[in-house]
Amino acid sequence: MRVALAEDGALFREGLLMLLQAAGHEVVAVAAGGDELISLLATTPADVAILDIRMPPEPDGGLITAERLRGKYPEMGLLFLSHYAESHYLMRILEIGTDSIGYRLKERVGSVEVLSDTLGRIADGEIVIEPVLAKRLVERPRGQKKDEIAALSEREVDVLRLMAEGRSNNGIASQLVVTPKAIEKNIANIFAKLNLHTDTSEHHRRVLAVLTYLRSQRDGS
């Protein structure tokens, strides 16, 4: 796999570079910050970019860089590494994309097997979330969340599932062979039933709805 890497901590960057090479990956770009990585990637294609969340450009260079990369190369997988596993950052990451994306703790990708498995799943289009964070999300007030999903109609669950796949309203409409207007109505109902209040932006509510769906999926499995 062709991997690009941006991390401002020299010790960690060197360690990760050696581990990636030991795992047999081709490291096509190594940078100490997001801007540098983007200019390197202008001439070199990569399958997955590994980004430290907190690096230049400050403060959250990894997130800014990821937005740019997703805009320029929608096919490129993104793996965020951080010292913290926080749902705040997961939300922001899922706002960037809900496919081919991952969020893991720095010390938890420290083996060839885990690193390759994480990169492979991202390249295959999956969302990879640090298990300790996924567990925390799943173990939250379960009964309430389950009820919320159960309150949705069959059509609304279909819409939510397609939202979780990262589709736009128009994309969902064509998939379900209805008008975009009908989808907007479905989504408004989903927000209301999931108690996503109007004090947050439409986009943020969309992400929260997707997260609720993902949590309910994990509950089921």
């Binding site: 901590g9 010790l11 360690g15 990760l16 581990l19 010390e107 420290g110």
Partner: peptide
């Protein structure tokens, strides 16, 4: 420093 050490151990394990 400890995070980087975890990576170095991973390399050693490999």
């Amino acid at each position: 420093r400890i995070s980087a050490l975890a990576l170095q151990l991973g390399l050693f394990q490999h």
